[in-house]
Design a binder for these strands. Sequence first.
DNA 1: GAGTTTGAAACT
DNA 2: CAGTTTCAAACTC
Length: 711
Amino acid sequence: MEMDTPERSKVGGASLSNKFEDSPVFSFINSLSPIQPVKSTYATSSVQAYQPLSFSIFTSPHANPQKAPRPQLRDDISEAAATDTGSNNGCSENSAQPNAQTALTVFEPTKINSESSTQCLLNEADKCTDFDAGSPDHNTTCRTFKTNFRPETNEGPSQRKNLFASESATSLECKDEVIDNDWDYLLAGNPDDLLICDPSTEGEEGSDTLVDGGADACQFLINNTQPSGVESHLHLGTTNQSPDVLVSGTALNGKILEKVQGGDLSSIVHKEESQQQRGMRRRCLVFDPSVSVTSRVKMISDGPKPRKAPAMPTLPGIGLHLNSLTAVSTVSKDLLNVGNMSVHKSQTKVLVACNSLECPTGTSEETSLMVEESSLAIVPIDAVEPHNSPKKRRRKADSSDGDACKRCSCKKSKCLKLYCECFAAGVYCSEPCACQGCFNKPIHEETVLSTRKQIEFRNPLAFAPKVIRTSDPGLELGEDSNNTPASARHKRGCNCKKSNCLKKYCECFQGGVGCSASCRCESCKNTFGRREEFVHEGEGGNVCDKEEEDLEDSQEKAGVKNFDPHAVDLIPITPPFETCGTLVKLPCYSSAKPPKPTYTLPTVISSGLYTSRHLINLKDLTTPTSCGENDDRYLINNDSPHGGVTKTSSPNGKRVSPPHSSTGASPNRKGGRKLILKSIPSFPSLAGDGFNDANNHKSSSFSATSITRGP
DNA sequence: GAGTTTGAAACT
DNA sequence: CAGTTTCAAACTC
């Protein structure tokens, strides 16, 4: 295609990092790119935005892979693979199988919303640019997930560093391998779709902190094929590919699979690196992100003894803070626009970053999940970023469109009290925060933990989610079972007097749940269910239908956005989106009568954990606004005797209700993917049993993260 | 953007 | 445990 030249140029340029010129990778790339590296002129696309990042990995200036003709790339790759097959070139040591037939397909592009992906990508790019590019202190990490996660994957390359979805990525793949950066690349066919840049990954394997280089960070580039007909785009996986195949492919010991798919055809290049040679390091694999994630998770448990993460590793990068995710007020929109999600895994850690378009200006929120064998932590990637930086402020301002990205603004609490939403959510403050004198940072980890412990000692439920959605409220709340399906209740109950539980002052209302018997509110008019009616819920639901209309105005005023539960069906759930967006907000359906489909987003989605060792909070994986059903989607405890999908405790102590039998049947789930977090430690309490509990689950820790697609 | 209102958290 | 104070978010102008 006409695009070939530029792309190749880009690729070549990218690969031509000074640093790596001598590397075999470089050679390989060259072989792939006959065209002399040229400074990329493709600046427009998001890809470009990423490029700096991607290249930063190699510490070289970047070329920008823009729309490179996928086919071309693929072809190149295939050729390279074929060529390399006989060679020791790291890129395709093992069997490159140019033949699409053999390609492993993990990914189903068809269900992904290409536009969304694209858009997200663009945003990502911006974000990358915004956040990372300029932050010398931060490891630039741009991550984008554009793929679907699949639970099936059992194994993956133990350490994957980067997945590049663009041509450049492709070229880089090989290079990387040689370089011994431990990067794994996932090549997604559509460069637009995916781009992951993780410069940080340069650390040695086993390096503890992402900050340090994110040494082992595993990043996935997942990409969605763009139906747009970009035939040239590379696709990962095809619709019908069975996960098994993928699994097997990934399962190859020490083998690196590089898969490039273009359209229907996919080619896979298997790279095999003997573990003896590279130990855990495995190279390029193009595959479904889910696989990656899972693999990583698995690795965590299997991997070398996890080192304690020092300070919170934070990768500045593109990402969506889980926290911010909560802020999304327009769920459906957001879901559609879901940003990216990337997972970084070091031997002992997994970093997951989600980006969403929610942050319009690239003020994206970045959240990273760090997982260690014994712990799971979600931390804002940019947590270490200084607060109040102009950049941050700008972001915050930019997020004015909604709650997205909004974080704390503590002035006196040092972000060490529950006043601080970040702290309360179990996450470190990050760039979007406008706090002053903040101690809620990785560098003050001990202080944070001790404070947290102190607070928990005082109130064991202090860090528990304020709002719990469950299909069995009674179960969650310890209340008498009232059979209110999927109703969520404020765990502690509000105490509103003047807001009538119609404003965000009311935690119940904010959480999109009705007031419960535990509330002490006055003149409750909570549209999600009034306290007075709570007692009647068991009889028929608690929603005040008759007042709904009148209350809608109130909700709107309160910033509560209407959420169309059915929108989910419309949303092509890409893992990233789904993961991010859904985590934040998913429609809750009551088996009976759904509460008014209005949801409010918590300002901060708690999902983090401070400690490297202890799982702190993922509570908002099952965000307050999410229902148990959704929770089930995301949190699954395989260890559970219930067959893997059972009540799982969120890190934040939020319990996840087992999926209803009906859940699977939910139309909404149809075609949906699930993100499964296995064995997430239960209540993250640092002080009490929760802690132990978490430890009990420690073994499994983040055993699995995946999104499964429904039938 | 500044000031007010609100209710949770913290304190006594 | 109750009352008061402190705090930061939510809200209003």
